[in-house]
C-alpha cells in the first residue's frame, strides 16, 4: 500500500479556466517520469477528462459501479495505452450528484491511494456539493486561475474554503497568460496575481493554440514531447510538483525582436 500517496485536488471556482486540461497534462507528464498516477474525474455533471485523454471509447465501468460494488476498482480503471503508468477513473452518471456524499468520495480515493503514488482529482467548478465532496477526500490542492478579475476573485473564494478544510499545501497555476498583453499592461501580471492571492506559484501556462489542437486529438501536449510553449509549461509544472527545482518561464522574455525590446522598455518602472 502506497502510504505517502499525494492526493491533489485541481480546482478553480470559476469554470473554463483550464482545470481538466491541466489534470490531463500533469497525469501524462507524471506517468512519463515512471510515477504511477491516477486521474479521477470528479466533475460528475460535466465530465470531460476522458475526452481530453482520448480514453472516451474505452470506458466500461465508472466510479459509480465501484461505489455500488457492482465491479472492482481494477475493472473500472482505464489504463492509458502509451503511458500505462497513468489510469483514469471515469465519472459516473450525472445523477450521482444526487446521492454522492463526502464519505463516498473518501472511499474511492482511499481505494486509489492503495495502488497509486499520485491521485489527481479534476474538481467541478463552483463551491457547492461537488466541490465539497472532492475537497473532503484531498490533502493538497492546485488552484488554477486566469489573469482576469472574475477568475481571480473566484480563486480567492476557493482558497478561503481550502484553508478552512485544512488542505495543505495549496499552490497556484496561472493559465492562459498572454505575454504581449502583460507587456502592454492590459493584463494582470504574474506578480499581481500571486500578490493578491498570496499563494506560492507552482507555474504558469502560456495561452497557446496548440492546447486546442491537442484536445481535438485527445492527445495531451505532454504526451508526444511537443516543444510548443504550453507543452513546456505543463512539463515544468509536473517536475516542480514532483520536487524538481525548475525555474519559471519569464513571459516577458518570450520574443527578442525590436518590438519586444521596445515593449520591455515601456514597462520598466522608473518611479
Amino acid at each position: 500500500m502506497a502510504t505517502n500517496t499525494r492526493i491533489i485536488l485541481i480546482c478553480s471556482g470559476k469554470g473554463g479556466v483550464g482545470k481538466t486540461t491541466l489534470t490531463a497534462n500533469l497525469g501524462i507528464a507524471l506517468a512519463k517520469k515512471g510515477i504511477s498516477t491516477a486521474v479521477l474525474d470528479a466533475d460528475f455533471g460535466l465530465r470531460n477528462l476522458d475526452l481530453l485523454l482520448g480514453l472516451e471509447n474505452r470506458i466500461i465501468y465508472t466510479a459509480q459501479e465501484v461505489l455500488e460494488e457492482s465491479c472492482r476498482l481494477e475493472q473500472a480503471l482505464v489504463k492509458h495505452k502509451q503511458q500505462p503508468n497513468l489510469s483514469l477513473l471515469p465519472a459516473g452518471n450525472p445523477r450521482m450528484l444526487d446521492w454522492l456524499k463526502p464519505d463516498d468520495m473518501q472511499r474511492i480515493v482511499s481505494l486509489l491511494s492503495e495502488q497509486f503514488d499520485y491521485v489527481l482529482i479534476d474538481c467541478p467548478a463552483g463551491v457547492e456539493e461537488g466541490f465539497k465532496n472532492a475537497v473532503s477526500a484531498s490533502k493538497e490542492a492546485i488552484v488554477v486561475t486566469n489573469p482576469e478579475v472574475s477568475a481571480v476573485r473566484d480563486a480567492d473564494r476557493v482558497i478561503g474554503l481550502l484553508n478552512t478544510h485544512g488542505i495543505n499545501p495549496i499552490q497556484l497555476v496561472l493559465n492562459r497568460v498572454r505575454p504581449k498583453m502583460i507587456a502592454s499592461q492590459e493584463m494582470l501580471s504574474i506578480d499581481d496575481v500571486t500578490d493578491i492571492l498570496a499563494l506560492p506559484l507552482l507555474g504558469l501556462v502560456i495561452e497557446d493554440e496548440q492546447v486546442i489542437v491537442s484536445t481535438n486529438r485527445g492527445e495531451p501536449l505532454t504526451l508526444n514531447g511537443s516543444k510548443t510553449p504550453a507543452a513546456r509549461c505543463y512539463s515544468n509544472i509536473a517536475s516542480r510538483l514532483h520536487g524538481e527545482d525548475i525555474p519559471l518561464i519569464d513571459p516577458s522574455k518570450e520574443g527578442s525582436g525590436m518590438r519586444d525590446k521596445l515593449r520591455r522598455l515601456m514597462q520598466t518602472k522608473i518611479f
Partner: peptide
C-alpha cells in the same frame, strides 16, 4: 509609474487596464 503610464498620461489615453483590474 512606467514609461507607458507617462506616455498614456501625455496622450490623455486611459490608464492601462491592468492597474484598474488590480
Amino acid at each position: 509609474m512606467t514609461l507607458r503610464d507617462i506616455l498614456n498620461k501625455l496622450l490623455r489615453r486611459q490608464e492601462a487596464s491592468a492597474n484598474t483590474a488590480r
